[in-house]
Computed example of a mutant assay.
Amino acid sequence: MGTATVAPAVGRETGRIRRNWRRLMAAMASHAVLITLSVVFLLPFVWMVTTSLKTVDVLNAFPIVWFPEKITFSNYLDGLQVFPFARYFLNTMLICALSMLGAVLSSSFIAYGLACIEWPGRNVVFVALLGTMMIPFYVTMVPLFSLFREMGWTNTYLPLIVPHFFGGPFFVFLLRQFFLGIPRDLLDAARVDGAGELRIYARIVLPLAKPALAAVALFQFLAAWGDLLGPLIYLSDSDMYTLSLGLTYYSTQYSTQFGPLMAASTVILIPIIVLFFFAQRTFIQGITLTGVKG
């Protein structure tokens, strides 16, 4: 009896150990793949930073020197003096801040109407809204430019800011998915207590949707910060240029000066890295929670 009782227990323990071992091996394999891909994606950034610290003789050395023995910061002084960096930085921050505010307010307002208010045809409107995501920007680029030119908005920041106050399909989709996860009983209880839709939207829905709103804000900030085509189309006054546009003109005029060019690119990229470093937890949480309910 003792032997018959011990044998199944030993078999179960052996099976458990094998399963744990397989899980460990699978986790190690997946982490190895992720680490390898991370290194591959980081190589261009590492090359850009190290190049910005190299002297001229090391820049042209062959074979390639990844990490120079002598570090110089003169490339940063040269790269930031070629164009008015401070002015372009303020121009870019203005566009980013206002477009981010418009995207968060308008997209959340539209998403609330599509997710939390019952009205006929809202699903049809939502599908039509998603359909606009399949229209490339290059198709509407010329009509939009003609429209803004007739309105007298060219060579101003209005074409880069005002459209974001009318909602973005992708942002509306993200926020709608998040709003669908809010308990309906909570909203109905607020309506029973006499709260209007605007008050429910401002006092209940928006405070609960902070992670999703942060994700939308970060997405829009990144898009506006790196936008080149928009400023290139609408801005003609050099005093109104953004960082991406200034860097483009600098690269075309000084394409052989790799050190200053990489230094300016590094400085432009630093705010994005810092922002994502501090907001990554909220960003990931917002992206995760928007897919809870479809």
Rank of each mutant, 00 (worst) to 15 (best):
T132C: 06
F219M: 12
L105F: 14
L235A: 04
P211S: 11
P183V: 03
L186A: 05
P271S: 09
D239E: 13
F73A: 01
L101V: 10
E118W: 14
R191G: 04
A224W: 07
H164K: 10
R122Y: 10
V205L: 06
G230D: 13
M133A: 02
V267F: 03
F221I: 09
R149N: 13
G230S: 09
T92D: 09
L94Y: 15
S38M: 11
G102T: 08
V127R: 05
P183F: 05
T36C: 08
I270H: 03
S74H: 00
G167F: 07
Q285V: 01
I95E: 13
F45N: 04
T5K: 12
A195M: 05
F45C: 03
T132G: 08
L213G: 07
L198S: 10
F173N: 10
F179W: 04
D239L: 08
G196C: 04
L232A: 09
T140E: 13
R203Y: 14
V6S: 07
G226W: 11
Y234V: 03
K70G: 07
L130A: 06
G168D: 12
L130H: 12
G79K: 01
A115C: 01
S265C: 03
I110V: 11
F178D: 11
G259T: 03
V33W: 15
G196V: 01
A263W: 01
D227E: 06
V292S: 11
T5I: 05
I110T: 09
L235Y: 15
F278W: 15
F219C: 04
D185G: 05
S238N: 14
C96Y: 12
S265A: 15
G168C: 00
F145Y: 15
G259V: 01
A115D: 05
A86F: 14
I287V: 10
I135C: 07
L261I: 02
A279S: 11
R19I: 01
L101K: 05
A217F: 10
S107T: 02
L130D: 07
A195G: 06
V10H: 12
F109L: 14
D188E: 15
W47P: 02
L160Q: 09
A202H: 07
V139C: 06
L90Y: 14
F179N: 04
V104K: 05
Y138F: 08
A217S: 07
F85W: 10
S74Y: 00
I95K: 10
L59F: 01
Y201D: 08
L144M: 08
W21V: 04
E150N: 08
I272V: 12
H164M: 04
S146M: 14
D227F: 07
S251Y: 11
T55K: 03
K70C: 02
A223P: 00
P159S: 05
I200P: 02
V6T: 09
T282E: 15
F109V: 06
T132V: 03
V267E: 01
T51W: 03
V192R: 11
Y254I: 02
G291F: 12
V58A: 11
S108W: 08
